[in-house]
């Protein structure tokens, strides 16, 4: 007689166990998900900004989702510098035209992609941004050029509502 024969009891054990495991897993989810961004945080997910007070060569920093966003009205020299870079030389190749909808306005999340510090503007070896925490250098298009950061400064979703107003988020 085979001792490995599947009995009704084995079947009951397995199905009961599976049912309990699925139940426990579904009950665990609320305890995990409660830590995710809540409705009040998500409700603050977009910001509108008036661009009129900003003159060329000036930047402002606005808060969006609790993070700083840099809005820089670039000078012609900065735009030219950003455009003439050979993409093959970049650790994270992205054309300047893909990063700025309107070349005059550079809008990006002001958080270093390494470990989240706020880079300082118009500093560093590439005349763009420099992160004081661990020494990442970004160029005038916010692209990583030197240092430990893995990617370029993030470009948030934004639209020009009209000539002088943008909406981030």
């Amino acid at each position: 007689m085979s001792e490995k024969q599947v009995t009704r009891r084995n079947f009951l054990y397995v199905t009961t166990g599976a049912f309990a495991a699925a139940g426990a897993a579904s009950l665990a989810w609320p305890f995990v998900d409660q830590m995710n961004p809540d409705a009040s945080v998500k409700a603050l997910a977009s910001t509108e900004i008036d661009l009129r007070p900003i003159i060329p060569g000036q930047s402002i920093t606005v808060m969006w989702r609790g993070k700083p966003v840099f809005i820089r009205r670039r000078t012609q020299a900065e735009i030219d510098e950003a455009k003439k870079v050979n993409l093959a030389d970049l650790p994270h190749p992205e054309a300047d035209s893909d990063r700025a909808q309107n070349p005059e306005w550079l809008v990006m999340v002001g958080i270093c992609t390494h470990l989240g510090c706020v880079p300082l503007g118009q500093k560093g070896d590439y005349n763009g941004w420099f992160c004081p925490c661990h020494g990442s250098h970004y160029d005038t298009s916010g692209r990583i050029r030197k240092g430990p950061a893995p990617t370029n400064l993030e470009i948030p979703d934004y639209v020009f509502l009209n000539e002088t107003t943008i909406k981030i988020g």
């Binding site: 830590m35 961004p37 945080v41 989702r65 609790g66 993070k67 958080i111 470990l115 989240g116």
Partner: peptide, 24 residues
């Protein structure tokens, strides 16, 4: 907390989960 963003693929979701938002 940004150290967790180094995890491939799910890094960003994990940090947002830790923060309960999009920043500390």
């Amino acid at each position: 907390t940004n150290l967790f963003s180094a995890i491939p693929l799910v890094g960003e979701s994990v940090t947002n989960w830790l923060w309960g938002g999009y920043a500390v």
